[in-house]
């Protein structure tokens, strides 16, 4: 439900940074466990771009896998779910990646 707002924010950021240039491509990094749906963001991005300097721009979404550090033993843990268990048995994990929603780059002409 909040993807439309997120898409609006992406358009606001890239069009502001582009100045009077036209945005043709935006690369978004989305964590595997970020609270947004890539398909929904794609759909909303197209809608929000209409009438802006990013109209027609292509949105590329790169999925970032979830990784965490175990606070008990320091081992790295792959997060297949938005929670996990270290081989040492601890579930006390410090997330490194997996929940980001970040604009990596854009292409302008």
């Amino acid at each position: 439900m909040h993807e439309l707002g997120i898409a609006q924010e992406i358009i606001a950021i890239v069009t502001e940074r582009a100045g009077i240039a036209r945005v043709t491509r935006v690369v978004l990094e989305v964590g595997k466990h970020a609270l947004i749906l890539p398909d929904s963001i794609q759909f909303c991005f197209g809608l929000c771009a209409e009438g802006t300097s990013a109209e027609g721009a292509k949105l590329e979404i790169l999925e970032v896998p979830g990784r965490a550090l175990c606070r008990a033993c320091g081992a790295e843990v792959a997060l297949e779910e938005p929670f996990g268990t270290c081989v040492c048995g601890s579930t006390d994990l410090q997330w490194l990646t997996g929940d980001e929603i970040k604009i990596k780059e854009m292409e302008v002409i």
Partner: peptide, 8 residues
């Protein structure tokens, strides 16, 4: 290509 690296 303009690098942004900006959290949404």
């Amino acid at each position: 290509v303009v690098s942004l690296e900006q959290q949404v």
